[in-house]
Amino acid sequence: MAEQVALSRTQVCGILREELFQGDAFHQSDTHIFIIMGASGDLAKKKIYPTIWWLFRDGLLPENTFIVGYARSRLTVADIRKQSEPFFKATPEEKLKLEDFFARNSYVAGQYDDAASYQRLNSHMNALHLGSQANRLFYLALPPTVYEAVTKNIHESCMSQIGWNRIIVEKPFGRDLQSSDRLSNHISSLFREDQIYRIDHYLGKEMVQNLMVLRFANRIFGPIWNRDNIACVILTFKEPFGTEGRGGYFDEFGIIRDVMQNHLLQMLCLVAMEKPASTNSDDVRDEKVKVLKCISEVQANNVVLGQYVGNPDGEGEATKGYLDDPTVPRGSTTATFAAVVLYVENERWDGVPFILRCGKALNERKAEVRLQFHDVAGDIFHQQCKRNELVIRVQPNEAVYTKMMTKKPGMFFNPEESELDLTYGNRYKNVKLPDAYERLILDVFCGSQMHFVRSDELREAWRIFTPLLHQIELEKPKPIPYIYGSRGPTEADELMKRVGFQYEGTYKWVNP
């Protein structure tokens, strides 16, 4: 592979701008107003304001973009700056750019259920340069409990009458099928589907988006991507930290609602779906819905739930269990780990287990898709061969690698495990991989909904998990304890083995 010439960040961002501006969906010269509902909250200060700053800094926003914060707290732009700027990672050389960014910011205080507050917000936006005809993007960085009041008031008082209007809704989209349907029906009564952007930030990850290209742009994968060759698929999300004093919020939802029903299920769809007619948003989402419709409700015998306990040999936070978090209700049975087996009941995947695993306070930070292939028929190497695996590593250190057998150097035919490896950090030294939120917010500006969740996708996802969630809430089974920093409950490994996964433990990928 030829040595790549190092590029400056300015040059890299210039390439990104060229890609972005050559499309006809990006209205570079139009006025846009980006409204952050819930501007005083954690999500706004840690993710949304920093993301908008990065896009502005790199010249990736339309030229005439204004940012308006809205929340109940009586704040000023200076207050917003004070709480969000520490997350910007701005350099001293960017000081003038930073001043320009905050000059485009404003803030309006108001209630979430008060019509007069929204009329005041609308008047404020109209007073901005060309504000009355601007395109408006409303980001709901809010708890779902206020979605209905907020969307109703936005629709009645704050819509642009000339430009387009788009609304970005953060997960969780309800707690179960019934609450999700209620919320979807409410929002759909106010906005068209092409105006609604239900954001799952995992769909903005580079390697998640790469799944489609790997599958449908490489001839070698087509013939082997089926039940005849693939023994099982494992989708993993692991965090090495616990709730760390923020367990009160987590306890309301648990690990299945927080990660599995959305992030992991979306990745499953991209692995299992048929080739779409095109890369058009609805063509892709149509195929994802077909996959979900082929999955039956989760069966309790295919589920393992766990909850982390303190590690007596650990240090600091590792010595504390979930129930030691003062914000967690006493005696909570909320799971911090889950392993679930699903089956896609169609011709391509009949009988292939899709194993979804996620948890907190585990032994490493990792998100990946792992396809394990069947054993080689007619073994001539005296059971020395391990199964081939194709691994798409989402985070950290984005990579695609194939675990395969090669001859060990020497005189004899002794096979050993090795890999074919594409590590993004080595291959793409001159490429700026956008943060997931950067990519998705740019998608909203461009009107691309491919990486957002459609209402029928959402409904099918909740259909699969709601009976299990209701059973857990009714019966309150005690989750299996696992030690902070471990791989999780051993019962999860036993479940995976029972459905056909072979864990060798003899080879570990190392970032080159």
Rank of each mutant, 00 (worst) to 15 (best):
Q83P: 05
T236D: 08
Q119R: 15
A217T: 10
N64F: 12
Y249C: 00
P92D: 08
E63C: 04
A231R: 07
G69Q: 00
R166A: 01
I80L: 09
G110C: 07
F191N: 03
P172V: 00
L190M: 08
G38Y: 01
A127N: 08
S123L: 09
A141M: 05
Y112Q: 06
S106W: 07
G69H: 09
L128N: 09
V150I: 11
R246E: 01
E206D: 03
N165V: 08
N210I: 02
E244N: 07
N165K: 07
T10F: 15
D194W: 11
D251V: 02
F138T: 11
F88T: 13
A141S: 08
L98I: 12
D100V: 09
P144K: 02
I256C: 06
E94I: 02
S40A: 02
A127P: 09
I52R: 00
K97N: 03
P223W: 07
G248F: 10
Q28D: 08
H27F: 07
K46T: 06
R57P: 03
F173G: 04
F66P: 09
E18W: 07
L235E: 00
R192V: 12
I196N: 01
N122Y: 09
A116Y: 09
W53K: 00
L190T: 11
G23T: 12
E170G: 01
E206Q: 11
I67E: 01
L137M: 11
I67G: 00
R9K: 12
R9D: 13
S180E: 05
G222D: 09
F21H: 12
D176T: 05
F241D: 04
V208F: 04
H32Q: 11
L137H: 03
T243C: 15
G247R: 11
R192Y: 09
E94G: 04
R219N: 09
I255S: 03
P92H: 12
C232R: 05
G38M: 02
D30V: 05
Q133G: 06
A6W: 15
Q111W: 14
D251Q: 03
A127V: 12
E193K: 02
G174Y: 02
N126T: 11
A134F: 14
H186R: 14
F241V: 07
R74W: 15
V12G: 11
P223Q: 08
E93P: 15
H27V: 15
Y139V: 02
T51E: 12
W54N: 14
S160N: 14
